[in-house]
Amino acid sequence: MQNLKKTALFDTHEKYGGKIIDFSGWQLPVQYEGITSEHESTRNKAGLFDVSHMGEVEIKGKDAFKFVQNLVTNDVSVLEDNQVLYTFMCYEHGGVVDDLLVYRFDEEHFFLVINAGNIDKDFEWMKMNSEEYDIELMNISDQVSQLAIQGPSAQEILQKLIDVDLTQIHFFYCKRNVNIDGVSCLVSRTGYTGEDGFEIYLDNDRAEYVWEKLMEVGKELGLKPVGLGARDTLRFEVALPLYGNELSKDITPLEAGLGFFVKLEKDDFIGKDALIKQKSDGLKRKIVGFEMIDKGIPRHGYEVWADGKQIGFVTTGYASPTVKKNIGFAMVPIEYSKLDTPIEIKVRKRILKAKVVSKRFYTKSYKKV
């Protein structure tokens, strides 16, 4: 795997027995002791993830708020200082450039967290759309490591090392310059698993130290390192999208069933006109959940059939570790999107029966206030 990037924790992953793969140009662990056990540990106790491959962009200047408000689909005006928002950047035609988190530090200072495979593309898109704004754009992705500790025991574990009361960091809020065993960090109550937990941003040269301290104090509470495999099964069970699967240049947020994060009543944002038209014309297709009836595991890219013809494709599919069923998401024409609609999935050369079900396979366990 020559020419692939490494996070500051690469040697640590090898120490813990991580099976390294190429993910969006990065050498990252897909698993340690096994996807299922890591998944179950996160659901029932706690899991620790290296997500340092994610990108970070800082925006400063008197027009920072106006720029971000025009850049994304959600309404940034609702944010308080140190609050976080999930949203999309869209192309003019309504397809998705990326999904991201927006952190507001103040009206002239924002922090965006973007997907690893999209860092260069996203930053070019931001620069291209920033010319009319008095701002400074900084891609600081190479300077920042990111750890995520997720699960029912996450707060108890992190509290052993941190100098703030974690009950005071509410869901989708952050606190800057907190001290984790002597290391200055940004900590937010966010994550990608459906469980309560925190994401920690810190300098690369301190990432290994904080990882090891968390593993040390979390051992008695069942903390395990978790790879990309379980990260995907965890997010999938709680219907969180993955760019390149449920979202892309060719799939709009409305087709993905994520219209809640698209505020069409905003004054303006890139892609607004196209999304208004798509909504007023009525969706022609959408992503649905499905459950296998016949025995077989669906996978990304498999064909979806009905009435003797191919009608769509699977965006994500797994044997779910939590609900113990073979389930997936699929893009289908709107007329096949109602609950209990019979469909078929082509698994290798076999056409297997399935049915449309709710995408809410597992109930999220976030700690909201």
Rank of each mutant, 00 (worst) to 15 (best):
N3P: 03
K6V: 02
F10Q: 00
F10D: 04
T12R: 11
T12L: 12
K15Y: 14
G18Q: 02
D22M: 04
F23M: 06
I35W: 01
T36N: 09
R43M: 15
R43T: 09
N44K: 13
A46V: 07
A46R: 06
A46Y: 08
L48G: 05
D50M: 13
V51E: 08
G55V: 00
A64W: 01
F65P: 00
K66A: 13
V68S: 10
Q69Y: 15
Q69L: 12
L71Q: 01
T73D: 11
D75N: 14
L79M: 10
E80G: 14
E80Y: 05
Q83N: 02
L85I: 07
Y86S: 02
F88W: 07
C90Y: 04
Y91H: 03
H93Y: 14
V97A: 06
D99R: 01
R104A: 12
F105A: 00
F105P: 11
E107K: 14
E107R: 12
F110N: 03
L112D: 03
G117T: 10
I119L: 07
D120L: 11
F123T: 08
K127A: 10
S130K: 05
S130A: 15
E131T: 15
D134K: 14
D134W: 07
M138S: 13
I140Q: 01
D142T: 05
Q150I: 12
Q159I: 06
K160E: 11
L161T: 00
I162N: 02
V164P: 04
L166W: 00
F171V: 01
F172E: 04
Y173M: 09
V178K: 01
I180W: 04
G182A: 08
G182L: 14
S188E: 04
R189E: 09
G191R: 04
G197W: 12
F198Q: 01
F198V: 00
I200T: 01
Y201R: 13
Y201H: 09
D203S: 11
K213R: 14
L214T: 01
L214N: 00
V217L: 02
G218R: 04
K219F: 15
L221V: 04
L223V: 14
L234R: 03
R235P: 09
R235V: 05
L240A: 11
L240C: 03
G244K: 08
N245W: 11
N245F: 07
S248I: 07
D250E: 15
E255H: 08
G257Q: 11
F261V: 06
V262A: 00
L264W: 05
K266P: 07
D267I: 12
A274R: 06
L275T: 04
I276Q: 10
K279C: 09
K279V: 09
G282A: 07
L283G: 08
K284P: 10
R285S: 13
K286R: 05
I287C: 03
G289Y: 06
E291S: 10
M292T: 08
M292S: 06
P298Q: 02
P298E: 00
G301A: 11
E303H: 13
V304E: 08
A306C: 13
G308E: 06
K309F: 12
I311G: 10
I311L: 11
T315W: 02
S320M: 09
T322F: 11
K325R: 15
G328Q: 05
G328R: 01
P333C: 02
Y336A: 03
S337H: 03
E344R: 05
V347F: 02
R348P: 10
R348E: 14
I351H: 13
K355W: 06
R360T: 12
F361L: 08
Y362D: 09
K367N: 14
K368T: 15
V369C: 10
